[in-house]
Design a protein around this nucleic acid. Structure first.
Lengths: 159, 159
DNA sequence: AGATATTGTTTTATATCATAACAATACTTA
DNA sequence: TAAGTATTGTTATGATATAAAACAATATCT
């Protein structure tokens, strides 16, 4: 029995002290750190961090979105997105364009160099992701993991 | 097909741009944040953060270990452990005792109040963990998830 | 005994993340 | 149309997490 609450025969519910290894949140955190470390090692050669990777990926996927839209999808506060985007722009990978329809907003695009960079990035990512899939045991296990994680993500607190 | 690399019929391997939702590391991170948020909400009433929870749990489980041992198990740098332990000590939940055998080290113990506190903590944790298990679909799915996460944790980079 | 290692600690640097305020622009509605 | 309100990108700032370097006290090794 791995459940944390059990009956102890006295009529009172015993509160079992959890074992850290069996705690969902703890193991999630440790696993995330391990996977991110592999990511960081993999991408150190092109000096790209996870947040930058995700932004370039979203821009490549759907060019023209504005900053707030990209930031929101990734759970990045728009205030913190500014420096991140500044970095990508200074490296010549992405650019802000004044939107015609809404002069407040910037629509985001990859530069030609950004397109090239993104290809190398995606190739690197493949090696990283394949390593993670191998560790899991194969694509079926990867799919299972993603499905379970989706369940955790599913119902955000209504509050 | 959710694989990132496929054949495109030209004889050259196409590098597919990953979809963020299918990236193991990304989904892991998002799920971890959601679970931690539930933890934070649950434990805000007793002002306890995840790191403090884990330290109290390990001390309760095995009293008398020294700081470095506890810190190492949790992946906390011993330098950063000091302030954390200071906090628990100031709250009267745990204490450092001079070790007889090694005057450099401190052996860590719960105070009587710490023991009481830990019971309330464990009860709160049960509600949190049960919520996570419910989201996953049940204890079987929880076990599956933990097993998959263990695989990711298994082979730390030899480097 | 002398060299070397470990323990807890302080200090410091960096990265991450959240909040508040602001100017420019857009939208709503009276 | 004018006035009030909301949104967008931005700056500034604070909180937290994390890592590294150095140090004194003590332990261990040779």
């Amino acid at each position: 029995m791995t459940d944390a609450s059990k009956e102890n025969g006295t009529g009172t519910a015993a509160v079992t002290i959890p074992a850290m290894q069996d705690i969902i949140g703890y193991k999630l955190r440790r696993a995330q750190l391990v996977v991110f470390q592999d990511f960081l090692d993999t991408f150190s050669k092109i000096k790209l961090r996870p947040a930058e990777f995700s932004v370039l990926t979203l821009i490549a996927q759907t060019p023209g979105q504005k900053q707030t839209e990209i930031a929101e999808q990734l759970g990045i506060k728009r205030a913190n997105f500014v420096a991140l985007m500044d970095g990508l722009e200074k490296r010549g990978l992405a650019e802000r364009r004044k939107a015609e329809t809404d002069k407040r907003s910037h629509s985001l695009h990859l530069t030609p160099e950004g397109v090239e960079f993104t290809k190398k990035m995606a190739a690197l990512w493949n090696t990283h992701e394949q390593r993670m899939i191998d560790r899991l045991g194969g694509p079926a296990e990867r799919d299972t993991l993603l499905a379970l994680l989706d369940r955790l993500l599913g119902a955000k607190p209504t509050k």
